[in-house]
C-alpha cells in the first residue's frame, strides 16, 4: 500500500541575503512559513517545486519540506525546519529577531 502523502511546502534561501523563504500560491517568495502554499499531493508538489526552481535570480537551494497543516498555517514536522523558520538557539538572531522588530 502506498504511504500516505505528507503535506509539503516549497522552501529555499534568498539568493542575496540567504534568508529562508517559502513559495506562496501567487508565485512569490515569503519569509514567513505561515504564508506558504501547502501542497497536498505528489503531483502538485512536483509541479510547484519545478516552478520554484526556475526562479534562479531570487533563490538558491530549493526543496520540498514536510509540514503539518494547522489553523495558523503550516507547521514544520522536523526540528531542522523549525530552526530554519526561527533562527539559531544560541542568539536571538535570524527570523525570530526580525519577527520581534516588525
Amino acid at each position: 500500500m502506498a504511504r500516505p502523502f505528507i503535506d509539503k511546502v516549497v522552501t529555499a534561501n534568498d539568493l542575496r541575503e540567504g534568508d529562508v523563504v517559502y513559495l506562496t500560491e501567487t508565485n512569490n517568495w515569503t519569509r514567513h512559513l505561515s504564508e506558504a502554499e501547502v501542497l497536498q499531493d505528489e503531483a502538485t508538489a512536483k509541479a510547484r517545486l519545478a516552478a520554484g526552481s526556475g526562479d534562479v535570480l531570487k533563490i538558491i537551494g530549493v526543496y520540498l519540506a514536510d509540514v503539518t497543516a494547522a489553523e495558523t498555517g503550516p507547521e514544520p514536522r522536523h526540528f531542522r525546519e523549525e530552526f530554519r523558520r526561527t533562527g539559531p538557539s544560541n542568539y536571538f538572531h535570524g527570523k525570530q529577531q526580525r519577527a520581534e522588530n516588525v
Partner: peptide
C-alpha cells in the same frame, strides 16, 4: 564561491 570560502548554511551564507 566554495573556492573563496563562501557556503550556504541554514539561515544565511
Amino acid at each position: 564561491r566554495l573556492m573563496n570560502g563562501l557556503y550556504l548554511q541554514l539561515h544565511a551564507y
